[in-house]
Design a protein around this nucleic acid. Sequence first.
DNA 1: ATGAAAGCGCTAACAC
DNA 2: GTGTTAGCGCTTTCAT
Lengths: 331, 331
Amino acid sequence: MKASEQRRVTVKDVAEAAGVGVATVSRVLTGTGSASAATRERVLAAAARLDYRPSALGRNLRRRHTGGIGLLVPDITDTFYARLADGVLACAKSAGEPVILGTTGDDPEREAELIGSLLEESVERVIAVPCGDGEMWGPAFRAGLGVVFAEREVPGRNLPSVRADDRAGVRTAVEYLAGLGHRRIALLARHGQEQRVRAFREALAELGVPVDEELIVLARGTRDSAYAAAAGLLQRRPDVTAVLAGGNMLGEATVLAARELVIRIPRDVSLVMFDDVPWAELCSPPLTVISQPAHDIGYRAAELVLRERGRPRTVTLPTELIVRASCGPRR
Amino acid sequence: MKASEQRRVTVKDVAEAAGVGVATVSRVLTGTGSASAATRERVLAAAARLDYRPSALGRNLRRRHTGGIGLLVPDITDTFYARLADGVLACAKSAGEPVILGTTGDDPEREAELIGSLLEESVERVIAVPCGDGEMWGPAFRAGLGVVFAEREVPGRNLPSVRADDRAGVRTAVEYLAGLGHRRIALLARHGQEQRVRAFREALAELGVPVDEELIVLARGTRDSAYAAAAGLLQRRPDVTAVLAGGNMLGEATVLAARELVIRIPRDVSLVMFDDVPWAELCSPPLTVISQPAHDIGYRAAELVLRERGRPRTVTLPTELIVRASCGPRR
DNA sequence: ATGAAAGCGCTAACAC
DNA sequence: GTGTTAGCGCTTTCAT
């Protein structure tokens, strides 16, 4: 007998074995409706004896949706998103829901494709770090999809999202740097993090530091792009005295580029990195960072998408400045 | 009109719009059977006009299985597994299949739970980094699940798996260390990496270095456990002169523990870490590593599970010693 | 080449 | 309290 010929145990089998109708089995197993203690007992026993596992396929088709959660991140290789995913998984686990993971590579087209296949799978809840301007979310909403955005939000519409407090984080970093005497501060950010760019401009303005647009450089979410951005900045503007890297990959790229160009941190340039990662402490020099609760962002997003369908809430989580050794006074 | 009241466009709608039967629509869309060029045209046009998306639910129920791939890793926060997952995603994307991610935390019980829910979802292909002795895989095989193991394998049974060449990697590291004059070499490994432990003993034996069992310490797959293992080893045996960390988290823990105990690397102890990660180069000192093709492991595993059902193959990928600055001659 | 009809496994009306 | 029945959306014989 080949393994592939195994017939699946179904409600019908259980019903037969327990001497009841299929509906009763369904009721007992899902906890819906009522059943006498005696029958309940018999059904449970039969199910256990046959090692019955309800088919999610049948249930989902009937209910016309999947219980699962779609999770869309730019890059699972970036520890920030890995931690975020971990948070989502932790919450989904307690709800017993499967998580379907997709990576967008920060490409709106890929994002649209992924949304499409989630729709095909009848997934009705998704957590996403959106890229692009959010055009592609139209079909999703029309299909009744419950969406919670994480880390970033889509401009325009007012949609549920959970994010770190970028404004406060950037502001804290800039104030710290300015307090050390820095004036030519650069910002390295990813596309889609306009929030941080805005906050950066504001913080500078409030401190009376003129905004030099050439010192704000945007990168895509790949290591190569991050490196190019960092190296380009450092070469083009050797007068920068401090840089704020808007993410751990950007921070990594900055350290690498600086070494390559024999620019010493913090003697020649100070560095503050967004997102605390384990290696920040191991780095030479240990990096001063703005830590973000990546895990919590994921967890809260999952809570929102799971339990608060419809209520568009937006959650902002605090960041924290952790001073280590990558910043010094203005040279 | 509430969004949730949207009725899904079905084959029936398309059939009606195209003036044909549902069977024809199905045939045209799946590419099965035959249809005249004219009808094909009409069906395609109707489908496009109605923005029809076939429901995976219906199809899967009918076919009695899901196309998706289950992916089980110990910890998505560990960059090795994140890169592995990335490889799986890359391959799954080209096949258009969704990936369901679950984390086991290296806990056999959790692993069993996850296998169970994959079975409920009728997933028929899974890629897993197994933990435990593989008892829990029995039900999976009985259900006809196609499994490919990654990074580790389950002892006993001969099952498809793709792994880095641990034997060669460990051997290379040990030879390198021995060549530097080291004799009291410790190994930090994870449970489930018995392969590496065995290779370690063999390599030592071949070089005529006596095996000191106290110098082989096993940890669970968490940061805390890794730190405890590293710190414990370094404290208990201040005479060790070199350590081989069997994974990036173990390496991280070793650097941290060494700093805490004011043990200098490489002056006091040399360190070789399994798995090259971006921060290895940024670390102080830059870490000498045995690099592993994490992405490829995932990609190949996905290829195997997708295209080579049934043929139990086992793939071994090469590792490479990358010398940086964390090793020195025996003090 | 194409349509009608039979389910896949499940749940929710609806009867009793 | 419990059984019967009608689908959910799709693919696949089986006729035509």
